[in-house]
Amino acid sequence: MTGALLLATILLLLFVALLFLFIGRVRIGHEPMLRRISAFEALKGFTGRAVETGRPLHLSLGMGGVANETTADTLAGLSVLNYLAEQAAVTGVHPTVSMADPTAMLVAQNALKAAHGGDVQRTEAAYRNVRWIAPQPAAYAAGVMSLLNVDNVETNVMVGSFGDEYLLMGEAAVRQGTLHIGGTSDPNTLPFIYASAQETLLGEEIYAAGAYLQKQPAHLGSLLAQDTMRWIVALIILVGVVMASLG
């Protein structure tokens, strides 16, 4: 057993313990104060805008699926979908949801079904707006660009795993005059988001969607555990730097 692996195991177990601790604390009423993230604030008004203008709201879950290394990013996009689907259950305006990976399509349909409870008609209407476009980045980008243009989308949200193809879609949204929020975890794609989106979710901010939009105890608790772990890791790095400097 190497030292690095032992440390990783200890940190993982510590993370699990913190997760249980903070989720428990949130469940008994210790709700944390969260810093303001303007993208989530803007997102809250998007469904209202779609209702007022009668034009659709588009959510892109990106290139990722739920059976590979992009799963966390896709689940972050699905947290946004959960929120939009809950709003749709009230307003009756269903978001258009697109994705490149068919496994993400199945989970997205499941999220819509959950939001509409047992209402079969509304669930079917919501399903009609779920679009699997294509697994290749260029084909997916072309499909989304066409969707933004042909469907005359009012508001565009892109949260998930994206590569260079993001800019093709982001620029299409800019040219269309669409209100646009973008977020991903890949540092190479972040400049494209910064340059094209009105509101941005940079890096780990996308994982906070469930905590900010729905105030779910599990998400709030994990956000607190994440922050605590960040301090611990930063401390370990600092101690490592000092020890290395002292020889």
Partner: peptide, 20 residues
């Protein structure tokens, strides 16, 4: 850290995107 937190939430059953 966000990815680990997302995975752990599913592992401990706190987040269940697979159920309706």
């Amino acid at each position: 850290l966000g990815t680990i937190a997302t995975g752990l939430r599913i592992l401990i059953g706190a987040d269940r995107p697979y159920t309706d």
